[in-house]
Simulated assay, not measured.
Amino acid sequence: MIALTRYSLSMLVRGQAYIAPFVLFGTAIVVLTTNDLGPITGTYSACALTQFVCGLWFTVAIVNTEDRAQRSMTVVAAGGQRRVLAANALAATVVAGGLTAIGVAYPAFSGTHTVTAADLAVGALAQLVCGVAGVAVGLLCSRVVIPKAGYAVFASLAAIGALTMIPPVPPVSPVMTLLSGPEPAGRMLAPIAAFGAFAVAMLVASVLIAEQVARRQD
């Protein structure tokens, strides 16, 4: 699995498909958090939203790096579609972890905030939760599930709208609402961790669904 994950990351770098989502992430973080005032947890809400969108984009980029013939060979060599999809998801999660480090540190130094350890923990956990949710959605919007690019774009936009604008739909919207609320950071850890478990369940389900769809298309 480690070798497959490294292969997924290397293909992402070689194809330079990481540039657009990384530029989006960097631009959004700088624009939305530089010289920001007030509770830093509110600032982390914008970072979490950015993580979700970029996590989705990075995942699609990772899965779509190989064309159909190349992916078929990778699946055979790896021993199955599920292993390749799991490696793709793990690679995208690694990327989300790297972006989380930036998304937690930059707002703390660029704005005027009183930052505690609980604030940093909440910010990191919330961004990881939204990043993993983005990976889960990205798998279902990739070429493996939706072969036509136009339909994939519409599906991605619909998913982003549903998970960020409909409050009851977990985990992204509730996490953003929680971060923007008046609760102290210490009290946010437990509910955000619960949403994290939901995001992991989403990811597992997405891998299984993508595997079944890919088998039928093959």
Score class of each variant (00 low, 15 high):
175 V>P: 09
143 R>N: 11
201 A>P: 11
63 V>S: 05
93 T>H: 09
175 V>A: 10
69 A>L: 15
76 V>P: 08
164 T>C: 06
67 D>Y: 06
80 G>K: 05
169 V>Y: 07
157 L>Y: 06
22 F>G: 03
86 A>E: 04
211 E>W: 04
164 T>N: 10
96 A>M: 09
179 L>K: 02
184 P>R: 01
134 G>Y: 01
173 S>V: 09
154 F>Y: 10
53 V>P: 01
143 R>M: 15
112 T>L: 09
8 S>M: 07
89 A>S: 10
105 A>Y: 13
199 A>E: 00
191 P>V: 08
130 C>I: 04
113 H>K: 01
55 G>S: 08
198 F>C: 08
105 A>I: 15
144 V>H: 06
39 P>D: 01
10 S>A: 15
200 V>F: 00
163 L>R: 07
40 I>G: 01
198 F>P: 13
1 M>C: 07
35 N>G: 04
63 V>E: 00
24 L>M: 11
154 F>D: 12
133 A>F: 03
62 I>A: 06
103 G>K: 08
63 V>Q: 02
116 T>D: 11
68 R>S: 11
108 A>I: 12
107 P>T: 08
215 R>K: 15
144 V>Y: 03
42 G>I: 02
168 P>S: 01
204 V>D: 02
164 T>H: 06
104 V>S: 12
70 Q>A: 15
162 A>N: 08
20 A>D: 03
112 T>N: 12
131 G>T: 06
161 G>P: 09
101 A>C: 12
109 F>A: 05
39 P>C: 12
163 L>Y: 05
29 I>Q: 04
131 G>E: 00
174 P>K: 14
182 P>M: 00
190 A>D: 14
213 V>D: 11
151 Y>N: 15
93 T>Q: 00
90 L>T: 09
42 G>Y: 04
2 I>T: 07
132 V>P: 13
212 Q>W: 09
7 Y>T: 15
29 I>D: 03
186 G>T: 03
84 V>S: 11
120 L>G: 07
25 F>M: 06
5 T>A: 14
190 A>M: 14
23 V>A: 06
81 Q>L: 01
19 I>R: 13
35 N>S: 15
101 A>I: 15
157 L>S: 09
183 E>F: 01
151 Y>M: 10
208 L>M: 13
47 C>V: 15
160 I>Y: 10
50 T>S: 12
194 A>F: 14
175 V>Q: 05
15 G>S: 14
131 G>N: 05
112 T>E: 13
203 L>Y: 01
65 T>Y: 12
16 Q>A: 14
110 S>H: 09
141 C>F: 05
214 A>S: 13
159 A>C: 12
123 G>T: 09
55 G>T: 07
34 T>S: 13
180 S>P: 07
85 L>W: 04
120 L>N: 03
20 A>P: 05
5 T>D: 07
19 I>G: 03
70 Q>M: 12
82 R>M: 09
3 A>Q: 15
61 A>N: 04
96 A>S: 11
203 L>A: 00
151 Y>T: 10
